[in-house]
Design a protein around this nucleic acid. Sequence first.
DNA 1: CATGAATGAGCCTTCATTCAT
DNA 2: AATGAATGAAGGCTCATTCAT
Lengths: 221, 221, 221, 221
Amino acid sequence: MDRTAYHRTVPRKQSATRAGIAPEAETKSARTRARILDAAAHVLSVKGYAGTRLSDVAEYAEIQAPAIYYYFSSREELIEEVMFAGIAEMRRYLKDVVDGLPADMSPMDKILTAVEAHLRHELELSDYTTASIRNSGQIPEHLRSRQRKEEVGYGRLWRKLFDEALAEGMIDPDLDVRTAQLLVMGGLNWAAEWFDPRKFSIDEVVRNAQTLVRNGLLSHK
Amino acid sequence: MDRTAYHRTVPRKQSATRAGIAPEAETKSARTRARILDAAAHVLSVKGYAGTRLSDVAEYAEIQAPAIYYYFSSREELIEEVMFAGIAEMRRYLKDVVDGLPADMSPMDKILTAVEAHLRHELELSDYTTASIRNSGQIPEHLRSRQRKEEVGYGRLWRKLFDEALAEGMIDPDLDVRTAQLLVMGGLNWAAEWFDPRKFSIDEVVRNAQTLVRNGLLSHK
Amino acid sequence: MDRTAYHRTVPRKQSATRAGIAPEAETKSARTRARILDAAAHVLSVKGYAGTRLSDVAEYAEIQAPAIYYYFSSREELIEEVMFAGIAEMRRYLKDVVDGLPADMSPMDKILTAVEAHLRHELELSDYTTASIRNSGQIPEHLRSRQRKEEVGYGRLWRKLFDEALAEGMIDPDLDVRTAQLLVMGGLNWAAEWFDPRKFSIDEVVRNAQTLVRNGLLSHK
Amino acid sequence: MDRTAYHRTVPRKQSATRAGIAPEAETKSARTRARILDAAAHVLSVKGYAGTRLSDVAEYAEIQAPAIYYYFSSREELIEEVMFAGIAEMRRYLKDVVDGLPADMSPMDKILTAVEAHLRHELELSDYTTASIRNSGQIPEHLRSRQRKEEVGYGRLWRKLFDEALAEGMIDPDLDVRTAQLLVMGGLNWAAEWFDPRKFSIDEVVRNAQTLVRNGLLSHK
DNA sequence: CATGAATGAGCCTTCATTCAT
DNA sequence: AATGAATGAAGGCTCATTCAT
């Protein structure tokens, strides 16, 4: 298998310094709104749900706290949107990547492409993703409905890939696909906790993860 | 390889309903203190650092909130102790398990034993572990020194196992041991986020994780 | 000696009902801040350092307690400022009075002018002064540095007057100037404890104090 | 006038290190009670009414806080007793001293004796006295009835002396006796605020106060 | 659009007090 | 006679939120 083939299919994300997911907005108003969202994602990823103070968000966004209310009707709505945006964007991105793959690519290569897409998105756009990932267990239930739907949808993308691989006999029969999928995705999610761009390169992490996943899932009989 | 051989070396943990790490204490005072710690671990794992209210801890421990101050001098001290206890206990446990293994066991089997030990401890005693794991990024720096030391120590235990396996040529040369170790441990850590005893058995999760790890690390040339 | 000569040099202070030292402020914000300070001075003078509750201060200032934090970052800062303002204002006032005296006035007459200034300030603006005076022994050390400096400066003003009188041979040689000064100032300070405008007039108290001090210090040989 | 004549009439108080007013008690129980009272006087004089914590009193008395309740039914009762004891003891002491004076002693010399007695009692036994003096303005009304009665009685002792002096024409006719008396007593009371045994000797303070008072009151026409 | 000013709710913490031992 | 353990009440402080400007 050509290990570099799928590489090219995953575009580089914007630089981590920009770190926002909101599009470069036209109106000033939309830009302020985006800045608030970005700031909230950042604070949320660092301080957690209960620790996210509007004053911190405001400071990071370089506005006054009450100004937030011009764009969001409450702290909860703002946070809900960050949590949703994190996973929704991730899902949309993975879907685009997978849909863009050649129809004849092997299921395992598709999975490895997904591994790369997930890692790049998580580690390069880390605020939204880690906000969404780290806090999904701490957020009150009533803020999670949209996010949960996206999570399920996101999981479904992966499930399809795993199911295809299973159907083609590429998965070690000792494994339960569902459990294996969760363990794999967990390994990827957790990378945000230890990844430090000064110690690792993303490419390196991607390569190792792909090797580990391919080895791990493949039937070696 | 006999997949059940190392199984027997990892003892069952106490049932998850007890969920505490403090020993069954002698004096009533020590028992109250332990109950508070257990309660704090529980709340912390669910609500996160900033969301952990002493009133919730007290309610869970079936005391009044100010009683906490009879045993801990501040909310911070209580939380610090939970965070420390979670990882310290995990480390002590893994060390005992590994030290008890037969000297001639293969490095890979040792790793698989560690996988099982980590998962059982995490999923059965989940409050302390998930508290420690989930909040390690949200807790103020000054509360983390003891915990961090334990984390390093814990990582060293795993590192030794991986290094042995590497030395014996059991690790796929395409992998960087350090990165692979972090990805593996992440997959295990994350299990606390999705594991639901009503949908999975711990044995099943352990078995899948072991297969995945063995396949994933092993050289298949 | 014409006992009324120095009288005219000491202006009447504003009425005790206003009781504040802050200038009639321009902005509403500054007025609220001044109201809080005045209220704190009042409560502090009555209840003492430890007994001063922000809720009482707030009630007296006709705001809600948390509003205090908009103007002062802590209870301690508020109290520190009251304590400082009390003595600083007193010092500034006495300095102005003394500096305005004719150069050829006799040292004893200057002392008597100071006696009057001290008493008027203390008894008419009593909240700040009694707050500062009564609590100077109960306040934690770290809140006293600015106040202490003012106290020293205030004492120096008096010291100069006493030294002049000594130099001109007007002090009874049986007296130690320093001790006499402390006893005299104590008598004046203490007046806030017993002075009741319904039973005494300030003019009367001033006159008696002046007589007592002049007689007391003067050499009668 | 022989300035040393009245000196001998005022006995030295017990050393300041003992600092208690309770008699050397017989039973251990009575001794503990006395220790608590002494401790309360000390804390009260330093921290003020609201700042006096039973835990501090207990620590100073070298017992546990709840033990106080074996001897006093509440914090208020304990404080009330200290406040009362301070002034009551002062009054009893001054009365004994004055009653012991030769019938033919001049009224002014009697006043000077009182000056000495007041200062010695205040500066040597300072805890009770300063507790009583400093807090008399901060204590809730319902704790003051016994103390107030003693204060009035104590004031009456002084009043008699001043009235005698007035009757014998020894008081400057420019003075109002009542006002003069309050100013004099204030000067003495305040001495506790500045007196520092490392800088002054009590004898020296007494001598200066006597000179000042004699000069101050005396008619010099 | 944005901010200065203010408030209500809630949390951590302290402390007098109680009670069983 | 004294203490360990616990509680109820209250106070300082923070923070989301509102509102007039």
